[in-house]
Design a protein around this nucleic acid. Structure first.
Lengths: 337, 337
DNA sequence: GCATGGATTGTAAGCGCTTTCATTCGACAT
DNA sequence: ATGTCGAATGAAAGCGCTTACAATCCATGC
C-alpha cells in the first residue's frame, strides 16, 4: 500500500519549501503565480490531500461545526439541517451531526463531546437548556447560534422566528371565524421553548377575546401522528365538544384529522383543525392543513451563515428574525351553525 | 481566557509522565490501579479533554465516519441516518454528513473531501458510481459500506435489500388481483440503481404474465409529490387508461393519488396505486398506500455496525440482506369490472 | 552605484498526543 | 544475597502541518 504523500513530498517535487506549499493552500495571494502553478501541478500529480489531523493541530481549527438537533426524523430539522449542510459545504466546512432525542442531559453530553472534538462552532436548537451548558460554551469560547427560537431581547445569538406571535396569529384567525370552543393539542412543552411558546401564543389570543385554554381542552402529545389522533379522539368525547383544534405542529394536526374522522365527524364541517410548520404533509392530507409556514430551509441557511461569520470573528450580536405566515387551506372553516 | 489544560498539565499534576496519562486513556489495563486513580483525579480537577487534532495526528485515527447521502429531505435517508448516528454514538464515533443531491460528481467530491478529513470509514448509498471512486477508496484503504442496495453476488460490502425482487413482488400482487393495464411512475433511474432495480423488478413480474411495461405507461419523475401528480394526470389521459399505477416510492404515490383525483377518478375504485418504502406518509394519506415496507432504521443501524466492525479490522466480506415486505392498505384493489 | 522597501521564499520551532524502547521496580526462585 | 522476569513507568522521537521570523530578490529613487 503506497503511503500517502505529505506536504514535504509536494515541496520536494516542486522544488520549494513546505512553508510555500502550505501557503498555496492557506494564503495563495502570498505566492507568486508561477510558483503556485508549479506547486499545484505537484499536488495534482501526487494526488496529495492535506492531512486533517496535522492541519487541525497546527492551526487549531477543524473546519468542522457541530449541530445538535432533537432528531432527524422530524422533517423540519431534516430540512433545516440540509440547508445548513449546503451552506457550510460552500465554505469548505463540514457538519458533525448529533441528536439528543429531546433529552436535555443527552444534549449536554453531545455538546461536550463536540467541543471536545474541537468543532469551530455549534448550532443548537431552541434556547432552553442548563446554564452550565452555556457556561461551558463561553468558557471555551466556542461560537454558537441558536435556531428555531427567537426573542427580540434574547441575550444569545439566535436565528429564528417568534413562535408565540405566530401561534397567536393563527389562533386569532380561528376566533375571527367565529369559533368559541377552541382546544389545543400541543407538543410536549417540557424543556421545549418552541412548543411552550406556541401554547402561550394561542392562549394570548384566546384570552384577549375572553376565552380560556386549559385542560382538558389543552392537551400535550408526543410528536407522532398516532398521539395526535388519540388526543383528538379524547377531545371529541368532551362535552361541550370543541369546534376547532389548534395543533402544535403538522404531524399532530395530521393525527387530529384522523382522530376527528374516527369519531365520525368531518373536517372542517364539524371541527376545524390547524397545524404549524407547513411541512409537505400539510399539503397532502385531506383536507389540506391551514397552518403556519415556517421557512425552515432559509432559517437553516441563515443560521449556518451567521455561525460562519461568528467563527470568522465577526463582531456584534446575532439576532435574526424570520417571518412565519399563515397559509390558509381547507382544514379551517367557520364553526357549524 | 484560561487556556485549555493539556496532557502535560495532567501529567505534572499527578506526578507521572505524559506517556502514562496517555495510557490511562488508551490502554488503561497497562496502568496500575492506584496510578490510574491519581491521573483520573487530575483529569477531573483540571477538566481536561484530549485535544482532537493532536490525537488524530499521533494516532492516525479520527473516531469519525462519514456518510454521503442524496439528501436529508428524503425521509428514508433521514431515518436511516438517524439510526446510524445513534449506533455510532454508542461506540464513541461521530458522524460527518454530506449530501450529494443525487449528483454523481458532487458525490465523488464529497467522498474525496471526507477521506481528506481522515474519516475512519464511509457509508455510501447504493452502488452505482464511477470506478475511480471505488479505486480511491481501495487505494486509501478506507473501509466503506454500501447501503440500500443489495445483491447476493455484490463484490462490495453492502447492507440492503433486493429492490428488484421486492418490486417484482408488489407488481405480482397487482397482476394477481386482475389488473392488466399497469403503468409505473418510477423515480429517476439514471445513476440510481435502486430506482432502476425497482423498474426492472416490476417489468420482471409483468413480463412473466405476458404484459409489457414501456413508455408511455412507464414514466420517470423527480422525487416530489407534484411530479408524481403530474405524471399521474398524464397517465390518466392515456387511452386505454391504466387501471393500476405502480410507483417507485411513496412520495410519488402520494402525488399519484392526487393526480388521479384531479382527473376526476377514484382510488382504488377506478385506479389502484402502490407505493414503495412505507414512510409515515403512506399511512396517512387517503386512501392509505399499499406499499413495500423497508426497514430503514434497522438497515441504518446494521450498516453502522458493519462499518464499525470493518474499521476494527473484522475480516471477511459484508453482505447483509434485509427483507422488505408488502403492506396491504386501501390503495390497491381489483380493477373495475 | 547603493540604500530602501515590498514581494517572495525559506528556516525551524512548535501544535498536543501516541508509542517505541529503555529503564526501574518488585516479587520470587535459586 | 543474587539473578530473573514481568509489570509499570519514563524519555523522547515523531505524527503532518502552520507560521513567526529571517533571508533573499529585485525594482525604485536618489
Amino acid at each position: 500500500m503506497p503511503t500517502q504523500p505529505k506536504l514535504e513530498d509536494v515541496a520536494r517535487l516542486s522544488g520549494v519549501s513546505t512553508a510555500t506549499v502550505s501557503r498555496v493552500f492557506n494564503a495563495p495571494t502570498l505566492v507568486r503565480e508561477e510558483t503556485r502553478k508549479r506547486v499545484e501541478a505537484a499536488v495534482a500529480s501526487l494526488g496529495y490531500t492535506p492531512h486533517f489531523g496535522g492541519r487541525a493541530l497546527a492551526s487549531n481549527r477543524t473546519w468542522t461545526v457541530g449541530a445538535v438537533i432533537p432528531t432527524m426524523e422530524n422533517a423540519i430539522f431534516a430540512r433545516g439541517l440540509q440547508a445548513m449542510e449546503e451552506t457550510l459545504a460552500e465554505a469548505g466546512v463540514t457538519l458533525l451531526v448529533s441528536t439528543s432525542n429531546y433529552d436535555c442531559d443527552r444534549e449536554a453530553a453531545q455538546i461536550a463531546a463536540l467541543i471536545g472534538r474541537g468543532v469551530d462552532g455549534l448550532i443548537l436548537i431552541g434556547e432552553s437548556r442548563e446554564d452550565a451548558t452555556y457556561e461551558l460554551l463561553e468558557r471555551r469560547g466556542t461560537p454558537y447560534v441558536l435556531v428555531w427560537s427567537w426573542r427580540a431581547d434574547s441575550p444569545r445569538p439566535c436565528v429564528g422566528f417568534d413562535n408565540r406571535a405566530a401561534a397567536a396569529a393563527i389562533a386569532e384567525r380561528v376566533v375571527e371565524l367565529g369559533h368559541r370552543r377552541i382546544a389545543m393539542i400541543a407538543g410536549i412543552t417540557d424543556h421545549n421553548d418552541r412548543a411552550a411558546a406556541r401554547v402561550d401564543g394561542a392562549r394570548d389570543a384566546l384570552t384577549a377575546h375572553g376565552l380560556a385554554l386549559e385542560p382538558p381542552y389543552l392537551v400535550e402529545a408526543k410528536y407522532s401522528v398516532d398521539a395526535g389522533a388519540k388526543a383528538a379522539r379524547a377531545l371529541m368525547a368532551l362535552d361541550p365538544r370543541p369546534t376547532a383544534i389548534l395543533c402544535g405542529n403538522d404531524v399532530l394536526a395530521t393525527g387530529a384529522l384522523m382522530g376527528v374522522r374516527e369519531a365520525g365527524l368531518s373536517v372542517p364541517r364539524d371541527v376545524s383543525v390547524t397545524g404549524f410548520d407547513d411541512i409537505e404533509l400539510a399539503r397532502v392530507v385531506d383536507p389540506p392543513l391551514t397552518t403556519v409556514h415556517v421557512p425552515h430551509r432559509r432559517m437553516g441557511a441563515q443560521a449556518a451563515e451567521a455561525l460562519l461569520a461568528q467563527c470568522a470573528g465577526a463582531p456584534g450580536p446575532v439576532n435574526i428574525a424570520m417571518e412565519a405566515d399563515i397559509i390558509e387551506r381547507g382544514s379551517l372553516a367557520p364553526p357549524p351553525t
